[in-house]
């Protein structure tokens, strides 16, 4: 299993926040980094499942459908 759970969560948060237009308050950083580390553990779990190119994402786009009668 890939383990990317050891990373600079605070540096990552600061850099990425600018990309999505968030000005992070330093008071919020401890909570944000704790949640990012938890998410990284979850990401390691999902990255550990071998997939093939045929494994599509779960949401399937529907171009249109008839309204209920």
């Amino acid at each position: 299993m890939n383990d990317h759970t050891e990373f600079d969560a605070e540096g990552y948060a600061r850099g990425t926040a600018a990309l999505v237009g968030l000005a992070l308050d330093p008071r919020h950083l401890p909570g944000i980094t704790a949640n990012l580390r938890l998410a990284a553990r979850m990401a390691a779990a999902v990255q550990g499942l071998p997939l093939t190119p045929a494994d599509e994402p779960a949401p399937i786009f529907v171009a249109g459908r008839d309204a209920p009668g």
């Binding site: 926040a17 999505v20 992070l24 909570g31 949640n35 990012l36």
Partner: peptide
């Protein structure tokens, strides 16, 4: 803080 962290997740995840 959960939401703020959630806004920053890598798309590949």
């Amino acid at each position: 803080d959960r939401f703020l962290a959630g806004a920053l997740l890598p798309a590949s995840w």
